[in-house]
Design a protein around this nucleic acid. Sequence first.
DNA 1: TGTAAATATTTACGTGTGTCTATGTCCTTG
DNA 2: CAAGGACATAGACACACGTAAATATTTACA
Lengths: 116, 116
Amino acid sequence: MSLELTPVQTVACCPPLVRAPLSLPEAEGIAPLLKALADPVRLRLMSLVASHEGGEACVCELNDAFELSQPTISHHLKLLHEAGLLEREKRGVWVYYRARTEALQNLASLIGGRAK
Amino acid sequence: MSLELTPVQTVACCPPLVRAPLSLPEAEGIAPLLKALADPVRLRLMSLVASHEGGEACVCELNDAFELSQPTISHHLKLLHEAGLLEREKRGVWVYYRARTEALQNLASLIGGRAK
DNA sequence: TGTAAATATTTACGTGTGTCTATGTCCTTG
DNA sequence: CAAGGACATAGACACACGTAAATATTTACA
């Protein structure tokens, strides 16, 4: 197995943007997380999952929410999963994705944390 | 002049991700903001400016913080400015950029806002 | 065991992004 | 008004990204 940190593990280690300059390694760790969110489809996927009842949603429901092909949705879900923003669980034929809210909150405090 | 909203104006109007699904127009308004931040160089630029004394920094200082060409830094600053994350002010020969902290805070509460 | 449904992977393609070099513009000062 | 410094713009190029079509994989069930 790899010793690499997922992006979501990286973000928890940094003070807010307004507090201190980010080092290059820190920035390189955090950027992939933001990149994963920086797409209209993935933003909507994330909000659909995160606001869904039980904090999770089945891929079948997510597919229906977009006018995009199933492989395209699967691709976006994979990116969010690899970034550490979504957890994946297979139950029978269906796959459920769950939002990692602590990852979102770490990211939020990095971006919007207070200066002092 | 244009009637378009800048991304930063868009973000203030949406509930947190975990609260309700984002509409397509909402997501398309917010994604550019995240995209602007989703790059290691721009993340560092943003944190350099935001954490700098007085909340602003001169381009000349920012150039020195990277091993990139001056036009490349200028390009990144332009993207951050167009997204509404940085304000631009020319004073004499120098240009100063200032972080729009309320934009960062709106973005943060969108991403990490509590569910209920 | 074989068939259908749910999801993922592969491949391909047009478009967008990050970077550089070269050049332009604006301001200051001699 | 000429020259130089600070910053922006334009053009070019390699690479990454979003999407779709075709195909593979996994699971349930008749």
